[in-house]
Amino acid sequence: MEGFVNTALIGVSLGAQYALLALGFTLIFGILGVVNFAHGGFYVLGGYVAYACVQHLGVPYPIAVMVAALATAGLGYVFEYFLLEHLIDNHLATLMLTLGFYLVMATGILVVFGPESPEFRFPISGTLRSGGIYIPLENFVVLSVCLLTIVGVYLLMYFTDFGRALRALADDRPVAMAQGLRPGILFPAAFGLATGLAGLTGALVTPILSLAPHIGDSVLAISFITVILGGLGSIGGATAAAFIVGMVEAFSSVYLGGSKGALTLFTLVLVILVVRPSGLFGREVRGA
């Protein structure tokens, strides 16, 4: 029973991290219609910005996390405004542009910080234990911040004019524009919000796992799996799918082993896509 609870806790922790990543990824697709191949790069950059703030500038970790989120949001805004915006309706061009930007970011980080993992520790250590059930304190903090951020994104998207405007653009761009909404202003903001979420996740998670220039690849892969399972563009779907992926990964890895666990996850995604090609909560066709 203790093993089962521990595995469930791992699943929830994984799910919360995946949800933050997937939210940003699906926001960009849902609103802009762009598959952001640079998403993993913003995650890594967030980690390195927080690391540089803490190690080189002596900034307290919580502030470093905020700086990382703002820096990646700012970079995302600038990238969308100056580069992506001009090609926003050309799907192939945006795909190549985001992929190229990821390579530039990854190589830049490699050149500046070197190939090896730096020493970047979470400021809190220790483990909460109750009998055989445990959760590392740092995981608990990250889980709490992730859950709060997810709630914050929901409030932003469903209870503010900004969120309503973004959802209107996602639903039907021509009609939303006819109502006076301006994609030229809102798209960079949406992109910045999404990349800020990736940067925030990187700043939170890399000190408890590891930080290295190449880790963005796996982040992109898990973001893809999650949003495809949830339905590309669906905020609720991405969140639900993130927790499903986290739970499946945890339980299958613990009870079937690492290789079979990965196989189980991919098989599940495949079966769901055969039964529901638009994902668990996706719409048939994007409006934009």
């Binding site: 093993g3 521990n6 595995t7 791992i10 922790s13 994984l14 991290q17 796992l209 590891s210 880790i215 690849d217 796996s218 982040v219 892969a221 990964e249 945890a250 339980f251 890895s253 613990v254 009870y255 082993g257 690492g258 666990g261």
Partner: peptide
């Protein structure tokens, strides 16, 4: 490519 080894470690 795994980044979080908690499940493997539990196993």
């Amino acid at each position: 490519g795994t980044t979080n080894f908690a499940p493997i470690i539990t196993r």
